[in-house]
Computed example of a mutant assay.
Amino acid sequence: MILPGFLYPGPLEVVSALLLATALDIVYPYHSGVMLKIHPVHTSYFMALRLFRPYSSRLRGALIWLAVMASHLAIYSALLYFAYRLSPVAWVIVAAYITKASMSARLLLEEVSSAGRGLLEGDLNAARRAAQGLVRRDLSKEDPGHVASAAIESLAESLNDGLVSPLFWYALLGPLGALAQRLVNTMDGALGFKDPEHIRAGWLSAWADTIVNYIPARVTAALIVIASAPHRSSGRALRAWLRCGRLTESRNAGRPMSAMAGSLGVMLEKRGSYTLCGEFGRLPEGRDVAEAVRVAAISSALLVLAEVIVLLLI
C-alpha cells in the first residue's frame, strides 16, 4: 500500500516520530488541564456520549461511530498535512504528539504497580482502589486473589489496547493508523456494552474493536511469551495461550491474558464469567502483579525495538 507523503513520509521521519512519542509517554504519562480537554480519547468519548441516546437503533449507533471517527481523523489529518508542508521536523513533532496520544504504557504500568504494592503491603483497600480504576466490575468486596487477578487481566488486555495495537497500526498506516485504533477502542468503551440500553447502538463499536485488535491481540500474546524467557516460563506461557485463549467471551482479550497467566503460573478469574488456567490451582498475589508488570515492560521494549528495526528495513 502506497500512502500519501503527509501520512507516511519516509522511514527516518516515521521512526523519529515513534521514538519521540515513546519518550513523551515515559516523561509525560498524565494529561491534565488543556492537554486533557483536547486529548482525542477524551474528546471522542464525550462526543459519543453526547450523541448517544439509551435504546438507540443500530443505525443511530453506526452514524455516531462514523461521525466521531470521521471528525477526529479529519482534524488530525489536516494537522499532519500542514506540518508536512512546513518541514520534516514539524511533521515529526505533530506525528509524535498524535502517536503519544494514541498509546499509554507508563500510566498503565504505574496503575497496575500501585495495586501490586497495596497487596504486598497488606493494604487491601488501597489495592482495591488502584485496581478498580482498571476494570469495570465491582472490586469493593473482592479478596486479595481476585483483586490481583483483576489487575493482571487488565494489564494484559490493556497492553494490547493501549500499546501493541496502536503501534501495530502505526507501522502499517502511520500516526493516523495509531489514532484510528485508539478511537475505535474508545468508541467500544463508550458504547460497546451488551446491556439493553447499548446493545443495538453499540454493535458497530464492538465489532470494529474486535476486528481492529484481532491480529494485535495475538501479537501481544506472542510478546508475552518471548518476554517470559528470562524466567524460563515461555513454554508454559505458550501452552496456556493455546489452551485457554478462547475461554473469554471476547475473541481477543483471552489471548494475552492466558499467556500472562501461563507466564506467572497462576489462574485468572472473573467471577461468573471465566476462569483461565485453573489447573495452576492458585490465584495471583502481590508478587505476581509485580512480575506481570516486569513482563509487560519487557514486552513493550521488545515491541518498540522490533518496530524500529522493521520500519528502517522497509
Results as ranks from 00 to 15, higher is better:
295 V>E: 04
310 V>K: 13
193 F>Y: 15
81 Y>T: 01
143 D>N: 11
194 K>Q: 14
234 S>K: 02
54 P>K: 06
279 E>D: 15
242 L>N: 11
309 I>V: 15
133 G>Y: 02
207 W>V: 08
285 E>D: 14
124 L>H: 02
31 H>N: 03
40 P>G: 05
58 R>S: 06
254 G>I: 09
133 G>A: 08
2 I>W: 02
217 A>Y: 14
3 L>S: 11
93 I>F: 15
139 L>D: 03
289 V>A: 11
172 L>I: 14
22 T>C: 03
284 P>N: 05
208 A>H: 06
38 I>N: 04
57 S>D: 06
132 Q>C: 07
157 E>G: 02
141 K>C: 01
249 E>Y: 10
138 D>N: 15
238 L>S: 09
99 T>C: 08
61 G>A: 04
7 L>G: 09
35 M>D: 14
147 V>C: 10
272 G>C: 12
295 V>L: 07
71 S>G: 09
295 V>T: 11
60 R>G: 01
87 S>Y: 07
219 V>S: 05
271 R>K: 14
75 I>S: 04
135 V>Q: 00
209 D>T: 08
54 P>I: 05
108 L>K: 00
143 D>M: 02
132 Q>H: 11
32 S>V: 13
38 I>P: 04
147 V>M: 08
76 Y>P: 03
233 S>E: 15
239 R>P: 03
119 L>H: 04
230 P>D: 04
152 I>E: 00
246 R>H: 14
46 F>T: 01
234 S>E: 15
137 R>L: 05
102 S>K: 07
147 V>N: 00
60 R>D: 05
261 A>I: 06
313 L>A: 15
242 L>C: 06
183 L>V: 13
297 A>D: 09
60 R>C: 00
78 A>W: 14
267 M>P: 02
138 D>V: 05
194 K>H: 14
215 I>D: 09
296 A>T: 13
267 M>L: 14
107 L>A: 15
249 E>A: 15
86 L>V: 02
107 L>C: 02
277 C>F: 13
61 G>E: 05
261 A>E: 12
265 G>A: 10
43 T>F: 02
44 S>R: 06
94 V>S: 06
127 A>Y: 00
245 G>N: 07
233 S>A: 15
3 L>K: 12
284 P>D: 07
242 L>R: 15
90 A>W: 06
209 D>L: 10
151 A>S: 13
303 L>S: 08
154 S>F: 10
265 G>W: 08
143 D>V: 03
236 R>D: 09
39 H>W: 03
90 A>K: 03
103 M>F: 10
80 L>V: 07
192 G>V: 11
150 A>K: 00
79 L>K: 05
265 G>K: 09
129 R>F: 00
223 L>M: 11
248 T>Y: 08
91 W>Q: 08
44 S>H: 06
178 A>F: 10
